[in-house]
Design a protein around this nucleic acid. Sequence first.
DNA 1: GTCTATACACCGATAGAC
DNA 2: GTCTATCGGTGTATAGAC
Lengths: 205, 205
Amino acid sequence: MSVTPTRDRQAERREATRREIVDAAWDIARRDGLAAVTLREVAARIGMRSPSLYTHFESKNAIYDAMFGQAWSEYLQVCEDIEPSIPKQVRKALLVMVSTFVEFALADQARFQLMNQRMVVDFEPTPQSYAPSLQVMALFRKRLALIGVAADADADLCVAIVGGLIDAQLANDPGGQRWIRQLPRAMDMFADEVRLPGPRLRSKR
Amino acid sequence: MSVTPTRDRQAERREATRREIVDAAWDIARRDGLAAVTLREVAARIGMRSPSLYTHFESKNAIYDAMFGQAWSEYLQVCEDIEPSIPKQVRKALLVMVSTFVEFALADQARFQLMNQRMVVDFEPTPQSYAPSLQVMALFRKRLALIGVAADADADLCVAIVGGLIDAQLANDPGGQRWIRQLPRAMDMFADEVRLPGPRLRSKR
DNA sequence: GTCTATACACCGATAGAC
DNA sequence: GTCTATCGGTGTATAGAC
């Protein structure tokens, strides 16, 4: 009579190998950029030949897909670990939310390019990998509503402003502060637009 | 005694061929995206073999470089053809400036990706091709100053907002209006921040 | 000078042996 | 599951024909 084992050692091993592959790809991406990731180097780093990767991922884009899902899941975790701030200082709460994202984005440029820019040309995330990014957006909207910003259009505008600042920063002054230092000012501007109460984060000149 | 011809027919022919190459590359980029441009297809379209392109451009990126410079030169021409609006309605003038850019950007997505996103990975524009984009930015700052927005930081913020809206539009709702329809509102928000006078372009709710 | 033919090194992906 | 061998594709280099 066959007995069902409590642990599927084979599945665990497979998952460990998939993780090794993804980690190696991140190493290369952080070192030389997302586009520098090649199957041959990924394989070499974990002691394999490139065709063997196809046992674990059906294509190179499937590896990017796993990286995409992992990055957004990590950021979702970061958001959930932060207690939603009290509505006492709503502008401070807004700044904390967007600063968290900015910090996460600037900390790893390759990761940000994969998450938010369409840096890998023929890559479209699968619904499964896209899910955590939708969860992040839903959580952001929920917390915006908590401090009094309920309209979808308002959240859209906020996301566009923050994204625009990050893009400009990375494109024109990578490693610098020229655009990002305007984040508190930009959030004051946005808060004024949506009539958030409270003192400004920065004075107007 | 040798006579210097008034026209250099050979140089004219060379320039015409370069133009043919660039035009063919634009056709492919508009059809299938920037990344779909291959030297073999560019060459085939103008009745050449791919190595022959190296007579006219030193690399594929040199073709992208020519396209980059051409796109920004065209936009510079568009800007110069528009009379700087009277400072009577400064908010209207601001909206006209940014709308011109948005319209140009959304009209040709491949062109916008080349001009403003870092879509081609290993491509850095040469100083010569970068020049017209600097001219555009200088003209934009000058006209902003004419309507009362003099600080560099203000222009940076404006550029980031508009860029963020365009990026979000193209990434999340290509062909739609969800983000771009907020442009007048965003410019009112910006105008309020920099204390531009005049009635709002859109009412606040 | 202009173009072709050929070749190289690299890429992602596939087939099939073990 | 991993290997070797190979395929069709890429950008690019170069020798040589005209």
